[in-house]
Design a binder for these strands. Structure first.
Lengths: 242, 242
DNA sequence: TATCGATTATATGTATACAACTTGAATACC
DNA sequence: GGTATTCAAGTTGTATACATATAATCGATA
C-alpha cells in the first residue's frame, strides 16, 4: 500500500474516532510521529480530506478538523436523499432488465432474511449495515452514471450522511426493530417502482427513505447522553443539545 | 499568491484551454517546465484536480486528462439542476424577507436591462454571463446551507455543468436572443416562487431551467463544425458526432 | 519482419532540507 | 496592571534528492 493511502485511511480513522482534538490545528510533525510516515504523504492526505469536507484550511496555513451543526447534518442527509432520488429516477427510466435487477433483488432478499427473526443480535445489525450498503450501491449501479456516482460518493464522505450511518448506533434501542422494518418496506417499494419504470415514484421514495435517517438521528441523540457508538459524532457541535 | 494556487489555476486553464494533449500522461517534469514551479505544488494541484474530476489517476501512477461523453455532460447538467432545485426549494421554505431577496432582485433587474435591447453585442453576452452567475450564486445564498453550497460547487467544477457555460458559446447564434429570454422568463418565475414560498414550484423551475442548458448544448453543437468558443469542449469525446 | 526480452532512461512516490511565516511567551513600556 | 513589542520556537509551504517502479529503446531470435 502507498504511504499516502495509509496516511489517508489512518487520518480519517483518527478524525472520526475522536483521536484528535477538535478546534486545534492539525500539526503535521505530530501526525508524522503518530502515523509513522513522512510529511509528504500526510500533506496529500490533508488535501484530500479537505475536499472530502472533513477538515478545513486555516487562513494562516494548515488545517483543523471541521465541526458541523445539526442543520449541516440534516442538510447532508437531505442532500443524499436528493441525489439518491435522482439516481433512483434514472434507474427507473433506464427500464432495467430482470437480469440487471438481480443484484438489487438479492440485496433485498438478504435484508428480508436478516429481519426475519424475532430479535436482532449485534451481529445482525452488522449484517444489516453491510447488506443495506450493498442495496444502496447496487441502486446506484442501475443509474449507470459515473457523474452521479461521484456526486453521491462525495456526499456520503460526511460520516453521518451515509445510508448506513445510524444502523449500528440504534442497535439496542427499542424502536430499532420497527425502524428497520419501515426502511425495508421502503426498499421493497423502491424496487417495485424501478422495476415498473415508475420514475417519479422511485425518486420520491428514495427521498423519503433518506429522511428516515433523519428520524434515526433524532431518536439516537434523544437517548441517554452516554453517547452511542456513532463514528464522527464528536464532529457535531452541541450534539448534546439536540 | 501561493505556488500551489498558481499551479492549480494554470493547470486548470491549460486543461480547459486545450493546451495539453488528451490521452497522454500528465508528465510532472514537463509541467514543472511550463508552469515554472517545483514538483511539490504541482502535485498538490494534481490531487485537487482529480477530486474536481478534471483529471483521473492512472493505475500505474500519475494522471491523465479526463474525457467525457455526451451522456456524462447531460448527467452533469441534470445533476446541477437537481442540486439547484434543492437549493431553490430550501430558499422558498426559508421564507426570505424582502431585504434578503434584494440581491436576487438586483441580479434579475440587471439581466432584464441587458436583454432590453433589440440586439446583443459581444459585450452584452459577457455581461449576461456575469449577471447570470450572480443570480445563481445569490439563489444559493438564500438556501443558507454550506453543505449544499459545497455540493453545487463540486458539480459545476465540470466546465460544461456551469450555469454560464453555454452563454458565450451561443453568442452569434440566431436563436440566442430567444433562448436568453426564455431563461430570463424562468428566472422571474423562480424569483416569484421563492418570494411566495412555493417551494415545490421553485424546485421544478430550477430543474427545468437547467435543462435549458442541455438544449443550448445541443444547439451549439449542431452548428458549424468549426467548434465555438467553449472552454473545455475538447474534453468531450466525439463532440463532432452529436 | 515481427515479436519477445533485456537494458537504459525516465517518471513517480517519498523523504528530507530550507526559508518564510505564524504563534506563543517573555520583556519592556505606558 | 494591562498592553505593545521583540524574540524564539515551531510550523507551514516549497524545493530537491533519492529509491523504486514504469516506460521506452534496442537488440536478439523465431
Amino acid at each position: 500500500m502507498q504511504q499516502s493511502t495509509k496516511a489517508l485511511l489512518r487520518l480519517r480513522q483518527m478524525i472520526l474516532g475522536g483521536e484528535l482534538d477538535v478546534d486545534e490545528r492539525l500539526s503535521e510533525p505530530k501526525l508524522v510521529e503518530r502515523i509513522a510516515v513522512s510529511r509528504t504523504p500526510i500533506r496529500v492526505a490533508l488535501v484530500k480530506l479537505e475536499h472530502e469536507g472533513l477538515i478545513e484550511a486555516l487562513p494562516s496555513g494548515g488545517y483543523k478538523i471541521r465541526v458541523f451543526n445539526k442543520q449541516d447534518v440534516f442538510d447532508a442527509i437531505e442532500l443524499r436523499g436528493t441525489l439518491e432520488g435522482l439516481a433512483a429516477r434514472r434507474a427507473a427510466e433506464n427500464r432495467p432488465t430482470r437480469r440487471a435487477l438481480a443484484g438489487l433483488a438479492r440485496a433485498l432478499t438478504e435484508l428480508d432474511d436478516i429481519l426475519s427473526g424475532e430479535t436482532l443480535s449485534e451481529d445482525d445489525f452488522s449484517r444489516y449495515m453491510n447488506a443495506n450498503a450493498t442495496f444502496h450501491d447496487t441502486l446506484l449501479d442501475l443509474a449507470a452514471s459515473p457523474v452521479m456516482r461521484e456526486a453521491l460518493a462525495r456526499t456520503v464522505a460526511l460520516p453521518f450522511a451515509s445510508p448506513s450511518a445510524f444502523v449500528m448506533a440504534q442497535a439496542g434501542l427499542p424502536e430499532s426493530h420497527q425502524i428497520l422494518h419501515i426502511a425495508q418496506y421502503q426498499h421493497h417499494r423502491l424496487y417495485e417502482a424501478i422495476e415498473a419504470g415508475e420514475s417519479s415514484r422511485a425518486e420520491d421514495l428514495a427521498r423519503e427513505h433518506a429522511r428516515l435517517a433523519k428520524r434515526n438521528l433524532e431518536i439516537v441523540l434523544e437517548q441517554d447522553p452516554a453517547v452511542p457508538n456513532l463514528p464522527g459524532l464528536q464532529l457535531i457541535k452541541d450534539a448534546g443539545a439536540f
